[in-house]
Nucleic acid binder design. Sequence first.
DNA 1: ACCTGAACACCGTTCAAGT
DNA 2: ACCTGAACACCGTTCAAGT
Lengths: 224, 224
Amino acid sequence: MTPPASRRERPAKAALSRTAIVSTALEVMRVEGLAKVTMRRIAQELDTGAASLYVYVRNTAELHAAMLDELLGAVDLKPAKARGDWRKRLEAVLTSYTMVLFDQPGLAQSALVTWPNGDNFLNTVEALLTILDQGNVEPKRASWAVDLLLQFATTTAAEHGTRAQAIDGEEQWDALVDAARRVKPEIHPHIAALGDDLWSGDGRQRLTWGYAVLINGIVATPRP
Amino acid sequence: MTPPASRRERPAKAALSRTAIVSTALEVMRVEGLAKVTMRRIAQELDTGAASLYVYVRNTAELHAAMLDELLGAVDLKPAKARGDWRKRLEAVLTSYTMVLFDQPGLAQSALVTWPNGDNFLNTVEALLTILDQGNVEPKRASWAVDLLLQFATTTAAEHGTRAQAIDGEEQWDALVDAARRVKPEIHPHIAALGDDLWSGDGRQRLTWGYAVLINGIVATPRP
DNA sequence: ACCTGAACACCGTTCAAGT
DNA sequence: ACCTGAACACCGTTCAAGT
């Protein structure tokens, strides 16, 4: 006698756990995008009901934060242990962080409201503080600086990241560029004079310039 | 003979229009929060079906952008026409912008992905460009600077704004502060040394410092 | 062109009941 | 303690049919 079909269709049902939930969520995100990462969908993937997930995660926001922390394991923190120009090394870590988030702008967007608090995030913060210390930025100023730098890096990923709803975002971006083009020079002379230079241009160069602005500003601005 | 009840219960049904939709949406948001601003709910308020709204707005993202633009009418742009220290005046406009968004962090969050493109937004951009010009920042640099300044102001509102899901956000914030407190000094010495100073502190002071960092950085960093 | 009802294909979260 | 099915109270968007 064969076992019931349900016993043969899948491998033995894995035990539910926070780790299993987060890694399943990341898998679904990688394949189908963040929009498909819903409690019901993750539950389905784990062969259970959505209600069961609430034993391990408080809500969707917490799940997103846990996913992001997992992703942050890929950030290259080696520059914190290297030698050489601290500004370059700071920029290198931030660029790595931004690139990791760039493929998942939706996750970056949610991180602005709910920051992760896992090991990978803490390691990133520690690395940034280490480099700022090497640059002789006093600790109290460095603490605010990290916040500012991470905010900029995260927002940039959320804003310009590729993927998923980016198709929709592209349309809205064009609408903004169009609006700037149609502006009347009598009413908005500065916008009209800048033309396409206002909202377009190489994203990578803007990012590099943004880091430089922040680092120069941090060095030049003591905490009150 | 009295008219049918349905004819007496409400004032004569107003004609549908983009303006009516946006102002109804703002009304619902003010009273019940952004989470309640759904296509179905706005339609109900306007005595019609959700499908009818799609004649005037492409989707939810566009509705949010239109709402935000309307809100931006409250930003104080007078400093652009005043005299005195351009840095102070730039900060004044940005502070006003941030305060307008502060009550609606959810709208600020969505603005990062879909910027508004209406008159009030364009007026704000024009005002910022005007002040930067008065500060002798060259136009090309000013164009990138505006992007950076608005991004910072908007993100700050999205992150630290009050209201609605802020209750939930508060919990997650505490979780982050807790995580920083529990850190092992051997592994994360810089985080441990900073203690509560890392994630806490007066939001207003951090905001002012952030503006100063950006302005100093912009002045010090030419465009490549 | 504008408007509509109905349908499609979903959501997050809670809770009583089970093990 | 963990897990579940079912229920509650919703979503955005499309489309054929009407005016």
